[in-house]
Write a protein that binds this DNA or RNA. Structure first.
Length: 289
DNA sequence: CTTTAGACGAAGTATTA
DNA sequence: TAATAATTCGTCTAAAG
């Protein structure tokens, strides 16, 4: 097994893609298209994450569906573990219903995760987060469910390092970017959630996939960011811009012919051309010296 | 004609007190 | 909560392919 590569034998249980990337450097397996992390043992994601060695990982992949990362919320009804996910949720609703907003929220979570092609564990965890917010009395009359649910989805994505930007979420949300951001800050504060900065490299597989770029380009782009790590470029506020710049640089450096334009990169990454350029300058300066 | 490069003000954001 | 500093965006101009 290579240090990092694609094994076509595995298929993403979520989106059917065979673009499963094996990154043994970071000890993880993830889908390049939907971002589903199939297995990993990175430590700093939170207390609920456990480590698996490679043997266990392989076994799990072969036995089919990925493990579910559901953490039962002990303060609320814990469903029978053998029930499928959808049934679980329905049953939960009937347990503590009386609150119609919960039903709406869960439906909205379903709708949005489907629209964004997000893996199931994200869907589940967002539901858990919503319940947590309920428990903390954060769901009140006057607060928009749309705002909160969208913000929660973003938070879960960040926690699980599944790359979706606030902008992308806003696009499928019934709320606006501004409102979602407000709700996001609100939730972070009230629930005391700490989020690690996004690693720009997380966006690269998906962007490359969208653009139809080769594995070689993708690896190169990731490599470029790796070299750059910790210099200040990588921890910028707009990680997508950095990711786009790295991809662009990778295409220029290797595949002279079928390169993508800055504009195409900008569109996929959801940033502007000038932003990519400014990131590019930093990256080039780093490599030059 | 298309793509890339640089610069400017405007606008919105994170951080700090 | 308000002010400050740093960043991004859109657009314009110009050069290069």
């Amino acid at each position: 097994m290579g240090e990092r590569g694609v094994d076509r034998i595995y298929k993403c249980p979520e989106c059917e893609s065979r673009n499963i990337i094996t990154d043994s450097k970071h000890a993880e397996l993830y889908c390049a298209d939907c971002g589903l992390v199939i297995a990993e043992n990175i430590v700093d994601l939170g207390p609920e994450w456990r480590s698996y060695d490679e043997e266990q990982t392989a076994k799990r992949i072969r036995t089919g569906p990925p493990m579910t990362y559901r953490i039962p919320d002990k303060g609320l009804g814990t469903p029978a573990p053998e029930l499928p996910a959808r049934t679980k949720r329905l049953r939960w609703i009937s347990i503590d219903s009386g609150d119609k907003t919960l039903v709406l929220a869960l439906l909205e979570i379903d709708r949005m995760t489907d629209a964004l092609k997000l893996p199931n564990n994200i869907k589940e965890e967002t539901s858990v987060l919503y319940r947590k917010a309920m428990k903390h009395n954060l769901i009140k009359k006057g607060r928009s469910i749309e705002d909160l649910v969208s913000a929660m989805l973003y938070i879960t994505c960040r926690q699980y390092e599944v790359p979706r930007t606030l902008k992308e979420i806003a696009e499928v949300s019934r709320s606006s970017l501004k409102k979602i951001r407000r709700a996001y800050i609100f939730l972070i504060r009230k629930l005391g959630i700490k989020l690690a900065p996004v690693n720009p490299a997380r966006y690269i597989p998906r962007f490359c996939s969208k653009l139809g770029l080769s594995e070689e380009i993708r690896e190169r782009a990731i490599e470029i960011l790796r070299d750059d790590e910790g210099t200040g470029v990588a921890k910028g506020w707009e990680p997508t811009g950095t990711a786009a710049a790295a991809i662009y640089l990778a295409t220029v450096l290797s595949g002279e012919k079928r390169k993508k334009t800055e504009l195409e990169l900008a569109k996929v990454a959801g940033v502007s051309v000038p932003t990519i350029r400014s990131r590019l300058k930093f990256l080039e300066r780093q490599r030059g010296s």
